[in-house]
């Protein structure tokens, strides 16, 4: 899929690139929605390092005792990428350090499914174009209901193309308190909704996954409703599988079997195989399966 460069007055060049067929529509939609947005709900222009970073929120305001979604939005220069929570063979994922007023809590980052980056020698997992890393925020019931809530974060990241550049960005957002009986969506709500569709889902009960250790490989088996021509496994833990090895897929007796070469750094047996499996853009699941030895 060739890169698509979109230019718009006042909006920086954004490239959405799909290196494999599963990446197309949701990211195009995310791009379209974000381009239509005229108002940012309070953001700070970051230091330019091939990535523009903003702090955005799904709602325009925050309710005492309520929960809301925050997001760190990365707009990456064409060809540049940042890394997934397991970066793969090289690179490191971005780290977000929140600075919140007393009583406020931020949840863990939700990672959209990544794309495969790099080469057959050094294989990484991450994002190109645009990505929103979401985290929930909980407001205390006794929060000050008359002044805006100052939210801040420091984002440390490494952005790479042929070379890597470290970046550090301090971003802020001011959320007024919401005293209304309903939520007030921000202009970013569309981007949050699209991103939620890019988050891996728990494995539905109709699907059964199992794993067995056979010599220098794991065999991941998946059985479920409907057919699949494709299956990719993104490991959550480092040093478990060889990221650069091909993942051979076989279809046998209605089950999918994926052969995963073990990492040369794996010296002891693992009890669980954890990660994300990708069948197609509508079926991306989180799995954590016990590993049986053959």
């Amino acid at each position: 899929m060739p890169p698509c460069i979109v230019k718009q007055n006042g909006v920086p060049n954004i490239t959405v690139r799909s290196s494999s067929s599963h990446r197309v529509s949701p990211h195009f939609l995310a791009l379209a929605v974000s381009l239509l947005l005229a108002v940012a709900v309070g953001a700070q222009t970051p230091v330019e390092t091939h990535a523009k970073i903003q702090l955005v929120s799904e709602e325009k305001s925050i309710r005492p005792g309520g929960s809301s979604w925050l997001g760190v939005r990365f707009q990456l220069d064409p060809g540049w990428h940042i890394y997934w929570q397991n970066p793969g063979d090289s690179g490191e994922p971005p780290i977000i350090e929140w600075r919140l007023p007393a009583g406020f809590r931020a949840g863990t980052i939700r990672w959209p499914w990544p794309i495969r980056l790099g080469t057959n020698s050094v294989r990484d997992y991450g994002y190109e174009g645009e990505v929103l890393l979401m985290a929930s925020i909980d407001a205390p019931t006794n929060m000050n209901a008359s002044t805006p809530v100052p939210i801040a974060a420091t984002v440390k990241y490494i952005v790479c193309r042929e070379i890597c550049v470290p970046g550090k960005s301090d971003i802020t957002l001011s959320l007024p308190p919401n005293s209304l009986p309903f939520d007030e969506p921000s202009p970013w709500q569309g981007l949050f909704r699209i991103t939620m569709a890019l988050l891996p889902k728990p494995l539905p009960s109709a699907w059964k996954a199992s794993a067995v250790s056979v010599g220098d490989h794991f065999i991941l088996s998946l059985k479920g409703p409907g057919s699949a021509e494709k299956l990719m496994f993104f490991p959550l833990d480092r040093n478990v599988i060889e990221n650069a090895a091909p993942q051979n897929l076989e279809s046998r007796h209605g089950a999918l079997r994926l052969t995963l070469k073990k990492s040369e750094h794996l010296l002891k047996p693992v009890s669980n195989l954890r990660g994300v499996i990708f069948l197609d853009q509508y079926r991306v699941f989180e799995i954590a399966v016990p590993v049986k030895s053959s």
């Binding site: 063979d89 090289s90 690179g91 490191e92 790099g118 080469t119 020698s121 050094v122 990484d124 790479c160 042929e162 070379i163 890597c164 480092r238 040093n239 040369e264 750094h265 794996l266 010296l267």
Partner: peptide
């Protein structure tokens, strides 16, 4: 700790 995941930039092999 005999075998850890190395951290760094990718080795720039020829394509």
């Amino acid at each position: 700790n005999p075998s850890t995941r190395p951290y760094g930039c990718s080795v720039k092999y020829p394509e």
